[in-house]
């Protein structure tokens, strides 16, 4: 379910490292909780984000949820697909519907994120608690 080579946060973001760049997205669990996503608001390339700061937001018809930067870095690319097809975030959250690519400014932060197994256990517990 959750790719083993991704790193996860308790706020339901993931990051995949490609050299000195981190590809960031939201998890399948997050997209399910949000329901039909209608709009994705992302930062401009060049924006510097600190870990844990608001990266952008995703909207359903009747809710807005903030997304937080899982790691620190500068935005080098924004996924243009999402501006015309926000529904992709419901369909392929771990693949085509990544959000931004960050040039990592503190790569060590990765180590403190959750593994796929830890994240699975975490959302498993959250779902059981419903």
């Amino acid at each position: 379910m959750y790719p083993a080579n991704f790193h996860y946060t308790k706020e339901h973001e993931w990051v995949r490292v490609e050299g000195d760049v981190g590809v960031v997205g939201i998890t399948d669990h997050a997209q399910k909780e949000l329901g039909d996503i209608v709009y994705v608001d992302l930062p401009k390339p060049g924006t510097h984000l600190d870990q844990g700061k608001t990266l952008g937001s995703v909207e359903s018809v009747k809710a807005v949820s903030d997304i937080y930067a899982p790691v620190s870095g500068e935005v080098v690319e924004v996924n243009a697909l999402l501006s015309t097809a926000p529904e992709k975030l419901n369909e392929d959250p771990h693949g085509d519907a990544w959000l931004v690519k960050l040039k990592l400014s503190a790569p060590d932060e990765i180590k403190r994120l959750l593994s796929a197994e830890d994240y699975q256990n975490y959302v498993g517990a959250e779902e059981a608690g419903h």
Partner: peptide, 8 residues
């Protein structure tokens, strides 16, 4: 409607 007060 996510622009509006009752949601945001």
């Amino acid at each position: 409607a996510t622009r509006e007060q009752h949601i945001r």
